[in-house]
Amino acid sequence: MSIDPLRHVCEDPLERKWTWISLILASVMGGVLGFYALASNLHPPSNVETIDSSRLHLSEEFAEDKLGVKTNPDGSLTITMVAARYGFYPPRIEVPVDTPVTLRMASADVLHGVHVPGTNMTTMIVPGYISEVTTTFTRTGEFSLLCNEYCGLGHDQMWSRLSVVEKPGGGG
């Protein structure tokens, strides 16, 4: 290793080896995650879309009568929800198993977050912005949407139900 560039800063060959291992380790971690991001389209929810959180009731998408589960032409689902102290609206939603679901969520007041224990569904819900996260629920059963960002003294009370049911027409 006479041309090892690390030799200028590090005299000990063993330590040079370890430094290379550390650099490779960091690169491999980044590389693996990058690979899955591209190969499986696996990204964190990163929608950049603004909305006036104080006027949700007047918006095309997030007015009270527009919320809930909608089926898209390709068979996937879009769920429109509002997070407001201290609940998720609509408070009870039902989705079929093994179906791509896109959740679009907006906050009517402060910062919220949501995750569904036992699934990979999670996103922050930030006033002024629309969150969008896509997932597929692969197990049937009763799940909970829990608020996971401190939103005020009633934060603990903020949760709602999600039922994942068999596909209509017997998919299982």
Partner: peptide, 25 residues
């Protein structure tokens, strides 16, 4: 997990995050 920042920026910051593990190693 926040909206308002696009995925590419998050990925760029992740690479740096793994680099900062190197001085600790």
């Amino acid at each position: 997990m926040d909206p308002f920042q696009a995925a590419g920026w998050k990925f760029l910051h992740m690479i740096g995050t793994f680099m900062v593990a190197v001085p600790t190693l």
